[in-house]
Structure formats: structure tokens, C-alpha cells
């Protein structure tokens, strides 16, 4: 079951990271986003961090264990947005 916010984040990831061959259905909420799973890289992490700041007003440390945790998969990302969004 995918929440509305998770669906929104899927679109944000696809649009921001220009994932031209990926559809929202391809992103499994429990699969890793980075390296394995979806296969995003370190530049994507920076790009996604910027998108979260622009869209939801969330600021993250670029290289902290906490950020690694939030970026693990779509569910952890949605939990972060739920908790910290200001916009």
C-alpha cells in the first residue's frame, strides 16, 4: 500500500533526477534507493536533498548517518517529510 505522500515523492524523484525510463510503479517503497534497488548515486543524493529543501523546507546534513537513514528507501524518506516538513 502506497500513501499519497509516497506517491508524491515517487514523482519528485523521477522528475528531479530525470529518470526517463522509470515509472512510479517501478519504485518499490521498501527497496533501497541508492546503489542497489533503484540505483541512484551520490550526485542524486545531493539533488534529492536540494529538492526536499525547495519543496518541503527540510534541510539535511549532506554526509551524516542520520541522512543515510532517511535516504534508505521511499518509506524512510516519507517518514522524514511527514515529521520535518515546513512547507
Amino acid at each position: 500500500m502506497t500513501s499519497e505522500l509516497e506517491q508524491e515523492l515517487k514523482h519528485l524523484i523521477i522528475d528531479t533526477l530525470e529518470l526517463e525510463d522509470v515509472t512510479p510503479e517501478d519504485i518499490d517503497p521498501d527497496e533501497p534507493l541508492f546503489v542497489e534497488g533503484l540505483g541512484l548515486d551520490s550526485i542524486d543524493a545531493l539533488e534529492l536533498g536540494l529538492a526536499l529543501q525547495k519543496r518541503y523546507g527540510i534541510k539535511l546534513e549532506s554526509d551524516s548517518d542520520e541522512t543515510r537513514h532517511h535516504f534508505r528507501n521511499l518509506r524512510t524518506l516519507a517518514a522524514l517529510v511527514e515529521e520535518r516538513r515546513t512547507a
Binding site: L17, I43, D44, L50, K54
Partner: peptide, 9 residues
């Protein structure tokens, strides 16, 4: 405004 890291890279 902040630059896109991917575009900058």
C-alpha cells in the same frame, strides 16, 4: 538560488 548538483557536475 542553489545550483543543481547534477547540472553543475
Amino acid at each position: 538560488a542553489p545550483l543543481s548538483p547534477a547540472r553543475f557536475g
